[in-house]
Amino acid sequence: MSEIKLWAFWRAVLAECLGLIILVFTGLSAAIGSRNNTFPDHELKMALAFGLATTTLSQCIGHVSGAHMNPAITLGLLATCQISVLRAFFYMVAQMLGAVAGSAIVYGVRPESIDSLGVNKLNGITPCQGFGFEFLLTLQLVLCVLTVTDKRRKVGQYAPLAYGLSVTVGHLAGIGYTGCGINPARSLGPALIQLSFDDHWVYWAGPLSAGVVAALLYNYLLAPREELFSEQTRALLCCGWEEETEPLLGEVKDVE
C-alpha cells in the first residue's frame, strides 16, 4: 500500500486515463469520420489511426506510467507479478474511465447525421469465432509488448514503434470480422455510450485471457527468468516485481 502515497503513482494513473481518452478519441473519429466507408481505404484508415496514436502516446506517457493503455496488457503483467495488485486495479479503472470519456467526447462533437460511434460488432461470424479472433490478435499484441520491453533485449527507443505496428497489424487482420477490439477498455467506451452490448463478452474474454496466456507463455516458456515463483508472489502482494522488469515503454520512478 506504500505506493498509493506517492504522487508518482497518481501521475501514472492519470497518464493511463489521459492516454485512453486520446487513443479512443482518435480511433473512433477515424472510424466514423469517413464520407464513404469503402474497403480497403476505411479499414486502413482505422488501422493507421489506432496504430499511430498508440506509438505517439507511448512516447508521451511511457516514462510516466509504462503506457499500458490496455487492460489486457495490465492483467498480463499482473499475472506474472511484474506490477502490484493495487497498481493494476487503478490502471484498469483509469483505462476504462478514459475510454468512456473519449467516446463521450466523440459522441458530443460528431455531426448529427452520423449515428454510429464505432461500437465493435461481429461481422458474419459466431461469438466463439469472434473470441478466437480477439484472443489471437491480442496474444500477438501482448507478446510484442513484452518482447520489446524486456530489458534483457535492450530494444529501447524502438519499443513504441513496435507497439504501434502490432496494434496496426491487429486492426488490419481483425476489423472485417470483429471490428478489432484487442482492448477491453476501447470496446467498453462506445458500447456504454450507445448502450450497445451485443456479444460484448467476446471483447473482454478474448483479450483478457490472451493477456494472461501471453504473459505466462513469454515469462515461463519463451524467455524464462531465473527468479523463483515464491519471490514473484511476494512481490505481487507487496509493491510489484521490479528486479528484472522495466515499465513497458519508459522508466517510471516513484518519488514523493
Rank of each mutant, 00 (worst) to 15 (best):
V167S: 03
V167A: 07
V167H: 06
V167M: 03
V167Y: 03
T168S: 12
V169K: 04
V169H: 07
G170Q: 07
G170I: 01
G170L: 04
G170K: 03
G170V: 06
G170E: 07
H171R: 07
H171P: 14
L172D: 01
L172W: 01
L172R: 00
L172E: 01
A173W: 04
A173R: 02
A173Q: 07
A173N: 14
A173S: 14
G174L: 01
I175E: 07
I175Y: 13
G176E: 08
G176L: 11
G176H: 11
G176S: 15
G176P: 13
Y177T: 14
Y177G: 04
Y177M: 10
Y177K: 14
T178E: 08
T178W: 06
T178A: 00
G179W: 01
G179P: 12
G179H: 04
G179V: 05
G179Y: 00
G179L: 01
C180R: 02
C180D: 09
C180A: 13
C180G: 03
C180L: 08
C180K: 04
C180M: 12
C180T: 15
C180H: 03
G181Y: 06
G181N: 13
G181P: 10
G181A: 10
G181S: 15
G181Q: 03
G181R: 10
I182M: 12
I182T: 03
I182K: 02
N183S: 02
N183C: 00
P184N: 11
P184I: 00
P184V: 06
P184E: 08
P184T: 09
A185Y: 04
A185D: 05
A185F: 07
A185G: 05
A185L: 01
R186L: 00
R186S: 05
S187Q: 08
S187W: 07
L188D: 00
L188K: 01
L188N: 03
L188G: 04
L188Y: 04
L188S: 03
L188I: 04
G189L: 01
G189F: 01
P190L: 05
P190D: 10
P190T: 06
P190I: 05
A191F: 01
A191D: 01
A191C: 06
A191H: 00
L192Q: 09
L192T: 09
L192S: 11
L192M: 13
L192E: 09
L192A: 14
L192Y: 13
L192P: 12
I193K: 13
I193Y: 10
I193G: 11
I193M: 14
I193R: 12
Q194R: 12
Q194F: 00
Q194N: 04
Q194S: 09
Q194G: 00
L195F: 13
L195W: 15
L195K: 15
L195E: 13
L195M: 10
L195T: 13
S196F: 10
S196P: 02
S196W: 09
S196Y: 13
S196R: 13
S196N: 15
F197N: 06
F197T: 06
F197Y: 14
F197E: 08
F197P: 10
F197A: 03
D198F: 09
D198I: 09
D198S: 15
D198Y: 11
D198Q: 14
D198M: 05
D199L: 04
D199W: 11
D199P: 11
D199M: 09
D199N: 15
D199V: 03
D199E: 11
H200G: 06
H200Y: 10
H200Q: 13
H200W: 08
H200N: 09
W201S: 04
W201G: 10
